Amino acid sequence: MPETPAAGGRTIGIVGLGRLGSAVRAVCRADGTRVCLTASRRTGWLAEAVPDVLIDASAPEAHPDVLDYCAGHRVPLVACVSNLSDTQWKALAELAATVPVVRATNLSFGHYLQARIAEFTAAYATGRFDPVTTVRERHPLGKAHRPSATALALAGTWAAASGREVADIADERSGLPVSEHELTHTWDGESLHVRHHVGSWTVPARGALAAADWARAAAPGLVTMRTVYDDLTARNRT
C-alpha cells in the first residue's frame, strides 16, 4: 500500500463495495470527490495514495485490516459496520486514541432528528402523560440482524432520556430497500408515531461523506453520528 498522501482536494478510501460502499463511490463520482483507495473481498486492497478519511462499509471480517491501516497511516475512520463483537468495539475505541473515529450506527440526518424528537418527547411525556413506547423496524428480506442496530439505538435513546424501557421492539423483513424505523407512544385513546423511511442508498452514502468531512478536521476520539450532526447543525445556525 502506498505511503504517500494524495495531492489536492478531498480524498476518500472505501472498504467494502456492497450496497453502501458502492453508493458512497457513486456519490463521490457525482460531486467530484476523489476515491483513491478501495478494498473488497473480490479485488483486495487497491490504493493510489493515502486517503484523508477511510469509510468502512464492509464486514466484521475486514475489521483488523481496517484498524491496522488507519493506525499505521494515521487516517480518520468512519466505521459503518454495526455488527462488531465486543472485542472489535474495544479495538475501535483504542484506535480513537490516535485518530478520529466516527461510530456510524445510522448515517442519515432523518434518524438524527428522530432521536432528537424522542428526547424532546421524553422531557414532556411524564407523570399522568407517561406513554407506553414501542419501536418497530422494517428491512428487506436478507437483512441479517434482528432487531437492527438502529432499532436498538432508538430504544436506548428513549430509555436514557425517559428513564423507562420500551415495551417492545418489533422487527419485520419485507418490502423494498432501504429501511423504516418507527417510534410509537401510546396513551389512553391516542398515539403518536414518529416514522423515518429511507428509500435509497444515496441517503446513508451522503451521511457517510458528511461524517468524513467532519472527521477530516477533528481531533482524535470516538464519537457517534449524534456528535457529527450536532456540530454540523450548530454551524448552520451561526
Rank of each mutant, 00 (worst) to 15 (best):
Y69R: 06
H73M: 10
L77P: 05
V78F: 03
L84K: 00
D86Y: 00
D86K: 02
T87V: 00
Q88G: 00
W89L: 01
L95D: 01
A96I: 02
A96G: 01
T98N: 05
A104D: 00
A104E: 02
N106W: 04
G110N: 06
Y112N: 04
L113S: 06
Q114P: 03
R116K: 14
I117H: 10
A122N: 03
A122C: 07
A123M: 09
A123C: 10
A123I: 07
A123T: 12
Y124I: 14
A125P: 11
F129Q: 15
F129W: 15
V132T: 15
T133K: 08
T133N: 09
T133C: 13
T133P: 12
T134C: 14
R136Q: 15
H139G: 07
H139C: 14
K143E: 13
K143P: 03
H145K: 13
A151P: 06
A153R: 11
A155S: 08
G156P: 06
R164S: 07
I169C: 06
D171T: 13
L176Y: 02
P177M: 08
V178G: 04
E182I: 13
T184C: 12
T184G: 09
T186F: 08
T186K: 08
W187R: 06
W187C: 05
D188M: 08
S191E: 14
S191Y: 12
V194Q: 07
R195V: 15
H197N: 11
V198C: 10
T202Y: 13
T202V: 14
